[in-house]
Nucleic acid binder design. Structure first.
Lengths: 123, 123
DNA sequence: GCGGTATATACTTATGCGGTTATATTGGAT
DNA sequence: ATCCAATATAACCGCATAAGTATATACCGC
């Protein structure tokens, strides 16, 4: 059942934080890595796990891999994404991740450009 | 994080079906067992797993153990219970479980009595 | 080409967990 | 006290998976 696959994806703290961060928009591995403070191989493997199950998609941009949530996630995933939004208030980790994300975004303008480029490319 | 514990509880098909059935009200192990069609030891172990994590509560009534969801589940669990309701429509397993549950309830009136007794006892 | 950065994969190890079998516990009936 | 039904626990096996280390691949700039 796909519902269970989604629960399996979200029942690990690293993956849950990854998915939560990606609800804010596409991100490259190195940024995810620096926000989580996790070793590169861990981030990469968890992203692969999510990708294999259709929870995230990836696309290369030059030397960076940009990960994103699918445009139209399956309904079961969408429900969980909504739940995640509600959890941001009550769970400190998520809020801190968001803070770090904002900082990264402000430090690095090219990220916006990349995302914009890919978004238009897909239309 | 408790959110993750809940995802771990729900990421197994047997446990997910158990939790879903208990949203309909308290049930004893033998009924859960006959609805799931799973071996007794499996049901018992999964219920223990859920109990240890506060997702279900249990109470002995004569020779039967009655399992139920807590009166006031933690908010994270409540969100998932709401999601589960939405999934009933799209997931056949749940609907079939409900059908079997209705049949059992109609075959066995003492269940209602037990539940009623325990409910009033707790007030 | 080479070196560096970003990312993925292979391999190993340790752990948790699901399934199975066997046994223990609890309560009711006789 | 004995037997049975309902349920839980223990002991085992096998598998998935998380973490760590090392290595490979892909792209870029020179």
């Amino acid at each position: 059942m796909d519902l269970i696959a989604i629960y399996k994806c979200l029942c690990d703290q690293t993956r849950l934080r990854l998915v939560h961060l990606l609800t804010q928009g596409p991100l490259c591995v190195c940024h995810l890595q620096s926000i989580l403070g996790a070793p590169q191989v861990a981030v990469s493997k968890h992203l692969a796990y999510l990708r294999e199950r259709g929870v995230v998609e990836s696309q290369r941009h030059e030397q960076w891999m940009i990960y994103r949530l699918p445009n139209k996630p399956q309904p079961e995933l969408e429900m969980q994404l909504r739940c995640l939004q509600d959890c941001v208030q009550t769970h400190l980790v998520f809020r801190e991740d968001l803070k770090k994300l904002k900082k990264i975004r402000s430090d690095c303008d090219w990220l916006e450009d990349v995302v914009a480029t890919q978004r238009t490319a897909r239309k």
